[in-house]
Design a protein around this nucleic acid. Structure first.
Lengths: 239, 239
DNA sequence: CAGTGGTCTAGACCACAAA
DNA sequence: TTGTGGTCTAGACCACTGT
């Protein structure tokens, strides 16, 4: 539950749209009506609607109203910043995580360049694979600044690193810069992943920052190409 | 130029951040100061700042201020909805477009399902390839409803379809749903693309809608895997 | 014309950071 | 304590859609 009113209104409406209590193609009540329903001012309603619009739930049309979009086929927008554990919880299939390596290390040149850090800033290196239906299809290599995450255990890495970082350590994730490319499978991919005929992996590299804009993690997530799917909703910026 | 004040303020600030007239790592003036500078109310300033935050220009910290992020390394977020022509115009290299096919057709079963249309709704089918440095690396297959785009010519397809649709026809693009996958190269890929050793292509399938929420286009954009790169900025939604 | 969403304002109060 | 951003409000006017 977000504590702000417009987030509650957003959650309420988005849930109703998901459950199809509000039909796709129909119009939402007018902003003034919603204001009465939720006992909120129009600007507050508009903040909630803007959020629904950004996330693909509605399309606003001036002079007409807000059309509810068909959100049923968008199974899993992986867009945004979501941890593997949160994704897996929404999936029907059972995922498991294996921790292959968990060490403290000094950053090598590549890491120093990527994270823009100094020699004396030690990092946790974590290598994990994700398995579904008996096949290891994702290989995650994480590097976390020890200055921010003092301690890590295999147990934490097997459950959910993000849950630990946010709920135990009280750190708040802010944003990430991501890059997606396709590369030939390497030695590690062949060792840790159940490679099919495919010889390629999709590599998602992320720099993750806290809410105070401090960098704290670099992640390389390597997906077996045939199991990779990325869904996105994009708006055109008219200027 | 957007005609609303907060868009102008957004454009002004984002430009200054791009040109590094406002240094990365520094704090923006306070919202009240910006209000005086731009002669706008605080809420209007906040709309501009919210937009900067969403697009990765700043990080807002309660009680402290808005930190300017390093936007210099984010060479071209392909996120959002941008036509090939607009992207190519920002690139250093020279891109060219070849039109291989331009026909009117009745939708086949696959297309009827994808676009949720009827038999009698004819579509334009356009096949084009994009070449840079002598290599054809992108293959675009577009399907446009003739009910919305009555006429198309090879000349238009070679220049910019979106420019024609938005500026000549006066239609406004609203949003798109996208899906990215990796697939084995097919017959058409081998025919139209300069395939390297790689045997895979990245396939971006998009359903594109107008501002009135009408579907008008389905596109399959096939990229040579070794030339594909997708950059994204994502915020964590704390709820 | 009436009704819708789009923008802007001035003011209020709260939550958080830094001194 | 001071100053920052976060939220909410009530009211005003504009732009667009439909009748």
């Amino acid at each position: 539950m977000g504590r702000s009113k417009f987030i509650s209104i957003y959650n309420d409406l988005s849930e109703k749209i998901h459950k199809q209590e509000i039909a796709a193609g129909s119009l939402l009540p007018t902003e003034n009506e919603l204001g009465e329903q939720f006992k909120a001012s129009r600007e507050t309603i508009r903040k909630a609607l803007a959020m629904l619009s950004r996330n693909g739930y509605i399309q606003k049309i001036q002079g007409k109203g807000s059309i509810v979009l068909d959100v049923s086929r968008q199974n899993f927008p992986i867009s945004g910043l979501t941890s593997f554990r949160e994704l897996a919880n929404h999936s029907k299939n059972k995922w498991t995580t294996q921790v292959h390596q968990l060490v403290l290390m000094k950053p090598d040149d590549h890491l120093k360049m990527m994270m823009n850090i100094r020699d004396d800033q030690t990092v946790w290196k974590v290598i994990r694979s994700r398995t579904v239906n008996g096949e290891a299809v994702i290989l995650d290599k994480d590097y976390l600044l020890q200055g921010i995450v003092p301690m890590l255990t295999a147990d934490i890495c097997e459950r959910s690193m993000y849950d630990y970082i946010e709920n135990e350590l009280g750190l708040k994730i802010g944003f990430a810069k991501k890059e997606i490319t396709v590369e030939r499978a390497g030695v590690e991919d062949k060792r840790y992943l159940t490679m099919s005929q495919d010889t390629h992996v999709v590599v998602v590299r992320s720099l993750v920052y806290l809410e105070n804009a401090e960098l704290f993690q670099f992640t390389e997530s390597r997906h077996r190409a045939d199991k990779f799917r990325f869904v996105d909703f994009a708006r055109r910026e008219h200027q």
